[in-house]
């Protein structure tokens, strides 16, 4: 071990380093004293300052952020139900109840399906809006669709979030021919009110024959299908709970 042959010489300067490394993090031991108290003081001070800054920023922007979020939701709902002038957020619970959602709490969100009841200027129910999502070409396509109880059909869609290929998949927002599908897309329930009478489905471009079919965009079939599936899944889940309770929603509840 001690016989210093040429190859081992190279390792000699390494050894003291390893010694320091072994005892260094162990604590405030020699060879050097770590300023533990200083470290704690500094970190505490920095954390305190930063905490104050963050709380101040949160408090001062809270109202604006909440207002922004509300406006964004309202705008999305108004887009799919043009007659609407105010909205109320509801939860459709598994028991069949429809509960007005109060505050920003997410407690009941686990089982209930969120939807928005939109009222016109006279406080009459103009329609119901809900979100649906399905896997598109690149990522999940999240859409908002408007349901009109009068005709039992979907009267408009808007995109909440998507990452589809620009110029192809994102035509679902702009393609007028495609959007015409949602002027009156049939989502009638069956006689028992347990599911849709006809499954909403996107069909090949130019092959739409029924009121519950969606004429896909040529070249963007996958995204079109995702829109169809999103509407279908959401409507299948929501409408059987919602339709029997529609009477309760007719008037805007004063709360």
């Amino acid at each position: 071990m001690t016989s210093a042959s040429p190859p081992t010489q190279g390792s000699i300067p390494v050894r003291p380093v390893t010694v320091v490394r072994a005892t260094g993090p162990g604590g405030a031991q020699p060879p050097q004293k770590l300023p533990t108290a200083g470290m704690i003081r500094t970190l505490g001070l920095v954390s305190a300052i930063c905490g104050v800054i963050i709380v101040a920023a949160y408090q001062s922007t809270y109202d604006a952020v909440a207002a922004n979020k509300r406006i964004a939701t309202e705008r999305a709902v108004f887009k799919v139900i043009p007659a609407a002038s105010s909205i109320a957020e509801y939860l459709a619970l598994p028991s069949g109840e429809v509960a007005l959602k109060v505050g920003a709490g997410e407690t009941a969100a686990s089982a209930g399906i969120r939807f928005f009841a939109a009222y016109d200027a006279h406080g009459q129910l103009a329609g119901v809006a809900a979100e649906g999502a399905a896997k598109g070409y690149a990522d999940t396509v999240r859409i908002m669709f408007g349901y009109s109880p009068a005709c039992q059909c979907v009267v408009g869609i808007g995109v909440v979030a998507m990452r589809e290929t620009p110029g192809i998949g994102d035509k679902i927002i702009t393609d007028r021919e495609f959007l015409a599908n949602f002027n009156a897309l049939d989502v009638k329930l069956n006689a028992e009110l347990s599911a849709l009478a006809n499954e909403v489905k996107a069909v090949k471009h130019g092959a739409k024959t029924q009121a519950w079919q969606i004429d896909a965009i040529a070249g963007a079939t996958i995204t079109s299908r995702a829109v169809g599936k999103a509407i279908n899944d959401a409507a299948q889940a929501l409408l059987p709970r919602l339709v029997p309770r529609l009477d309760a929603l007719q008037q805007r509840s004063k709360s």
Binding site: I54, A57, A64
Partner: peptide, 21 residues
């Protein structure tokens, strides 16, 4: 990092307040 993260959080709130889009 603590200092930087603080200001990033502040910016995060500010941008949310200015424009959600």
């Amino acid at each position: 990092i603590v200092i930087i993260a603080t200001f990033v959080t502040v910016v995060d709130y500010i941008i949310q307040a200015v424009s959600l889009a």
